[in-house]
Every structure is written in structure tokens, then in C-alpha cells.
Design a binder for these strands. Structure first.
Lengths: 153, 153
DNA sequence: TAAAATTAAATTGCACTTGATTTAATATGA
DNA sequence: TCATATTAAATCAAGTGCAATTTAATTTTA
């Protein structure tokens, strides 16, 4: 078995399916004026109302290099506010605005419409979900040990 | 169950795991001077030696907007050549060079090293592989029907 | 406590991705 | 056959992602 054959890779369908799913979301998200990354950012805010950039990055596996310009855009759209924490000025706190909260109602129809695009049984979806989070967990471990090794050197 | 909660999404771990895996590849690929997208492009060339941009895009689910600049970079590195087809000048044919072929030997160690980073049983990997290709297949169908509907309108 | 280390965002540079448009070549049909 | 339609790449604009560096604030420690 050729280890460099595209069809023998597990990573490639993961990479391709992820882009494909985001592409499926695009027209639905365009109706509410969001990109996919903006959408998952808003999801965190709809859950927590207020969150630091650091925690947001931990939740989404994204760093400030991606989040800073994205949050500035969402602020400009009036969906959130950005302000330094009074306790620790290094922390920037992001807060949902009433407009941002209102957008949630419009977004509520999106998951169901996406669901119609994907035909997996509940069991298949559950299995996939579990395997993906297993992978994510292992990758977090990897990043941490790499980090520690780097600090030691 | 809140449909807009991050942890209730199937798409989010897919998106995050795909980026995470590519990040794991990065240091290994840096040793052979490739990015992940360049790596899977070379994979197609290692299999076929010669391929049109159109077929390459079909194999990788990428369009000329991504591939054109990427192929120019690989050409500049001497790994492939780009030339218009004599039969049909609209087609650009990409061909592996001896240097590109030689790079394959260096890349051969990468899949095993990546495998060490991910701890899934053969059965789990097979299940994940199957589900991801099932998703990819459904998304292809979606894109095609959307395309047809658009052409009709 | 003052210097050194650490932390959190922001910034910068590079490499994608994608949608939309443009350009060039080929195929079609009145 | 010549205008029209189609096809394939290339180009362009906008939005990520990420590594590396910088800046500002806070801790730690000698």
C-alpha cells in the first residue's frame, strides 16, 4: 500500500470535508451577514454573552491573529463591543450587544437547513462527532507536549 | 437542546480537527519545503506524473484561484513544469520533473511520523474515513444540484 | 522594590480559499 | 461560416489562519 497515495490518507478527506461543509453554510450565513468564522464566534457569545479574547480563542482553537481583525469587523457591524478589562488591562473583553442578541433569532433556522444538506443517521453523526473530538483531544495533547519541549530547550 | 450551541455542532469539530491536523503536518512538511496544500498537490503528481489543472482541481476539490498561484510556486521550485496542451490551448498540463520525483523519497517518511501523532485504532480510522467520504459524496451532489438550479434560472 | 519574566493582544508577513470577473480558446448552430 | 455559447485558466478582492514579532500590562524574584 502506497503511503503517499491520496486515497490512502485520512487527513485529506478531513481537510476536504471541512472546506465543503463551510461552503454549504455560506449561502445560509450570507442571509444573516456572517462568515462561518464569524458565526461560530457569535455562537460563543450567544452562549456566554461576555467572553475574553483568550477564552474565545481556546473555545474556537483560534489565536489573536485571526480573532482581532474578525472581532473588529463584528464590532463595526454593531454585534458586539470590545473593551479592556478594568482588573487587568491586558485582557480584552468582548460583550454581546442587543443587536447581536437579536441576530440569534435570525440564525436559529440555520442548523435545521444545514441538516437537510447532510444525510447521516443519528448514529453515524454521533460516531463522527465522537471520533472528531477524540482527534481534537489528541491534538491538544500534542501541542502541549511540543510547547513544553520547546520551553525546556 | 440548543441548536446554536457550539458543542451541539457536528461541523465545528470537523472544522477544528481539519485545521489541527494540518498544523501537525506543518513541521514535517517544512523539512521537505512544502505546505500542506502543496503536499497533496505533489501527491497527485507522484501518482499520475502528468495532470491537467482541471483534473487536479477535481481530485483536490480546489479551483484555479487556489491552484494557479500554488502551481507557479512549485514550478519556480523546479518540482513541476506547466505547459498549455497542444490539442486544446485552454488546458494547462502540469508535469512532474525529476526533482519533483526525487522529493517523493524524502516525503516517504512523513505519513508514518504523522501516524505517531494520532492514536486511532484501525477500525476507528476506517470508520472515520468512511464517514468523511460519505459526507464528501453528499456535498458533491449538493453542489451539482445547486449548479443545475442556477443554470436553469 | 526594581529588573526580569510572563502574559495578552495586536501587528506583520505569508499562504491559502473562495466568489466573481476577465481573457483566450474551442465548440455550436442558425 | 460567423456570431454565440461554452469551457479553462487567470486575475482580483475579501476573509481567514498561523508563525513570529512587538507592545503594553502584570507578576515574579533577586
Amino acid at each position: 500500500m502506497d503511503p503517499l497515495k491520496l486515497e490512502n490518507q485520512l487527513c485529506f478527506p478531513l481537510y476536504a470535508a471541512a472546506r465543503g461543509i463551510v461552503k454549504l453554510y455560506t449561502p445560509f450565513l450570507a442571509e444573516v451577514g456572517l462568515t462561518y468564522t464569524q458565526y461560530i464566534t457569535m455562537m460563543v457569545l450567544w452562549e456566554r454573552r461576555q467572553v475574553g479574547v483568550k477564552e474565545l480563542g481556546a473555545a474556537l482553537y483560534l489565536d489573536s491573529g485571526t480573532l482581532t481583525p474578525l472581532l473588529k469587523k463584528l464590532e463595526k457591524q454593531g454585534l458586539l463591543t470590545r473593551a479592556r478589562s478594568a482588573q487587568d488591562e491586558r485582557h480584552l473583553v468582548v460583550t454581546l450587544t442587543p443587536q447581536g442578541e437579536a441576530l440569534r433569532e435570525k440564525a436559529l433556522q440555520i442548523p435545521a437547513r444545514m441538516g437537510e444538506c447532510v444525510d447521516l443517521s443519528a448514529e453515524e453523526a454521533g460516531t463522527l462527532y465522537g471520533l472528531l473530538y477524540k482527534l481534537l483531544g489528541q491534538m491538544e495533547d500534542r501541542q502541549e507536549t511540543a510547547k513544553l519541549e520547546q520551553d525546556r530547550g
